[in-house]
Design a protein around this nucleic acid. Structure first.
Lengths: 342, 342
DNA sequence: TTGAAAGCGCTAACAT
DNA sequence: ATGTTAGCGCTTTCAA
């Protein structure tokens, strides 16, 4: 038997209005009555009906805000297309999404963007942001205010977030190592080109990579590690110099963005049998895989990330979720030329 | 401005009841009035509101039937778990799913199962069935009866189906070839172990495999092709015999099920450097990948297939879809030990 | 052949 | 502090 507000009210011997007030913490209910209703709701397993809620709240849509450091960064476009897909799908259930795009990872810019989204009346947020103390504080502060926060694509450690939606960077790194060991049996002299040592995800990709190489007892050495700061120009220079200085390098592991730049350096360098590995299925990486410069890329389903982040936030606001919300970890996807989108 | 039944009725100068009758082809409306309303609906871009529909039709749930040849076949369990997920998610939008499980691919059994589902009152069907003339006829017949049919996991050619939800077998085969060329540079002497020559998907996997080997100008020969009929015992025997008869074989391509049996034959054979390739991430295949007997498997996201088949069917019944419904093709996923679920 | 009205579950405004 | 009621969009039943 399904439990409705009506049946709950009946069971508790109060009116539907009172039940609604309790369920939404809108106060103006006697302490003991509230407690009783909450108990009863849990006991009977009350789950609000989305259809009813959507219809009733049609005039005051459920507003969700999304913060993306997407300006000038092609990767985030795919996440955004997932966000848009979710918005369209849930529009007739009363969902409204406000997207705030910013450029880069400046702490203050991100904090301002969050304030902007709150000012727009968002009741839940999906954030791709930096792993710093001030953001940590802000997120925990939002928790106190009953604003649900979904962390999207990159996690922020030690926060009271609803959940994390994104990839498992450690597995992604390990997968690169696994592919490498499948393809090469000679001793590996590896150059690592990371985006930034400040980005958790990049560090984890490197750690997972090494872990798997060690687990398989691969014969390798890390010749050098350079930073591209996710800039193609910077990445090209750094890679070119490193290759020049260390001609024994036969493998380049690109942990961050800047695949385009690194690829250019590889072409300029001319040495043919360097095994290059990168991440994400973007226009630029696809070109290099097509050309055989990069053998494969490891991807993280960014569109699904955007879609599910919004979905989770919506479900939270619609009361569909239990207390414990599991993270949504996208699959680690290996793309070679044959299974790449065209 | 959103278009509702109410606003449509107003625009057409009739009552909501009349509009509803027209929209659902329930007759009892004058020809010209009906035509006018249909025109108007298209023109104004009317899309029914799921929330409203769900609430109203709460007593008469939208019933969708699913036919799975899942008895005794572990692969289909994952599709079923996707079906269940969709059922739960859309339950509060008035969805009800009837699952009919059968064993094997007997034509008559499948036709009977379809009749059963119709008798249950299903208004749309998701079918995993065989590619034969009688099924083709039946599906086209259902189309005439306005029963939406989603073909799930395996397509049936030349049918008026709503759409196909499943994998791209050609790409899957090509991906195996791509991985093979990445890992091995020596001449390939390949044994193909297919499930059945009667199954479209298996044939496509073989065709895609050869196509990619040819495209890359790989030096290879197909030593032999044997059938397992998706039976492990049969697969083990056939493989064992073929390996014995052709000791030059250094690669086994398992296009169908029976991975377990083929793996057993490989172990029994003892030769160490045979490169084996299989499909799908099941308990049995996972074990062989873990053990290093099979280097990788190519997977097809069966859970998503089940989920999206139901979703599409639901959307069709809820009037959310346009005339042209695109197929839903799942990604071709390479799993090595490092990115396998544990 | 068509119109009118009730009711699905929920929320918010209003009344007590 | 609590109860009552209207109405969201849609379908269905009953009345005309």
């Amino acid at each position: 038997m399904k439990v409705t507000v009506k049946s709950l009210a009946q069971a508790a011997g109060v009116s539907r209005g009172t039940v609604d007030r309790v369920l939404h913490n809108r106060g103006a209910v006697r302490e003991d009555v509230a407690k009783k209703i909450k108990m009863l709701a849990k006991e009977l397993g009350y789950v609000p009906n989305r259809a009813g809620r959507a219809l009733a709240a049609y005039k005051t849509p459920i507003k969700i805000g999304a913060l993306m450091p997407s300006i000038g960064n092609a990767f985030y476009q795919e996440i955004i297309s997932g966000i848009n897909a979710a918005q369209e799908e849930f529009a007739d259930l009363g969902l409204d999404v406000v997207l705030k795009e910013v450029e880069g990872f400046d702490e203050q810019t991100h904090l301002d963007a969050i304030e902007y989204l709150l000012a727009q009346g968002c009741k839940a947020l999906c954030l791709s942001t930096v792993n710093t103390d001030r953001l940590r504080e802000k997120i925990n502060e939002l928790y106190e205010k009953h604003i649900a926060v979904v962390l999207l694509n990159t996690d922020v450690e030690n926060t009271k977030r609803l959940c994390y939606v994104g990839s498992d960077y450690l597995t992604a790194g390990a997968t690169c190592a696994g592919m490498l060991s499948l393809a090469r049996q000679d001793k590996l002299h590896i150059l690592i080109v990371t985006g930034s040592h400040l980005l958790l995800g990049h560090n984890l990709r490197i750690e997972g990579f090494k872990q798997e190489l060690n687990r398989q007892a691969i014969d390798y050495e890390i010749v050098d590690t350079v930073e591209s700061f996710d800039s193609d120009i910077r990445g090209q220079q750094e890679t070119f110099n490193a290759l020049k200085a260390n001609p024994q390098i036969n493998c380049v592991y690109i942990a961050g963005a800047a695949v385009q730049g690194v690829g250019a350096a590889l072409i300029a360098n001319g040495k043919k049998d360097i095994f290059a590995i990168g991440f994400d299925d973007l226009y630029s990486t696809r070109q290099f895989v097509d050309a055989g410069i990069i053998k494969f890329v490891v991807c993280q389903q960014p569109t699904r990330q955007g879609y599910h982040a919004i979905k989770r936030a919506y479900q939270a606001l619609a009361g569909q979720l239990n207390d414990k919300v599991p993270d949504f970890i996208t699959e680690t996807i290996i793309k070679i030329r044959a299974n790449m989108d065209r």
